[in-house]
Design a binder for these strands. Sequence first.
DNA 1: CACTCTCCCTGAAAGC
DNA 2: TGCTTTCAGGGAGAGT
Length: 272
Amino acid sequence: MPELPEVETTVRGLKVINSKKIVNVKIHIKKLRFNIPKKIEKKLINSKISNIRRIAKYIILDLDNNLSLVIHLGMSGRLKIANDDYKRIKHDHFIIFLNNQKLLIYNDPRRFGFLDLSLTPNLKDKKYISRLGLDALSTRLTYKYLFERISKSHVPIKQILLNQEIISGIGNIYASEILFDAKISPFVLGKDINITHLVKLIKSIRKILRKAIRSGGSSIRDYRNVSGVLGNFQSSFKVYGKEGKIIGKNKILKIVQYGRSTFYCPKLQNNK
DNA sequence: CACTCTCCCTGAAAGC
DNA sequence: TGCTTTCAGGGAGAGT
């Protein structure tokens, strides 16, 4: 669910708690994908949120005590802001109480997400951050950069788009949508993509992700922003989840690459 | 080193 | 209808 547009939507929604002070923290389960850092409560309580930002699919809450809280939503994670009369529901694992009577709640049924704490200046040294390639919406993402990174690769472009060490922020849904928009076959290998297609690919990456952000994010079913409002980009999906759909007289197929589903149209995505 | 596969977990949807 | 099976958005780490 949460790819760059959903994370960006979440970060924008979280701005309302910027400059608020953390007055309490409750952990209901200590192990998500990784263990929640020990004594995190003590480090968070009494600090003030000084900045809220996104790095790839990571949400960063910078605090005024030189620490940063890192949140990754995994596949099913969600952040909610609620009032102090909120009744905890299933899978609410981590709750931050703020000095404006609001709560920040981390809910994650599959627990593939994680929370981490870092000294703010050392955040970039965390290995999950340091390895990241350019952000999918970075202006530095050019065809030259991509060519340099993939022109020797024997991996299909669909998988390249999912590799966060090359471009960060794209997940399985938007990868299919982007390739469809760029009319590029998901099978074409990095080494076989020409410059014209790289230029088209970058255009489509920006176009699809920006449009999804404008729609408030998306998901298969029910991506919601921090206030619980549904995103609606999924109504704009052209190929994802559309197996068998006919466009003109061309059919959309679903295949599996590297264990992930890819939706595409062989006739329209032929690299011509 | 480069690449591929499996697994973490719950719940929705499909299959029977 | 209801029980069982399959499959899912991410990413690390093991395996080839």
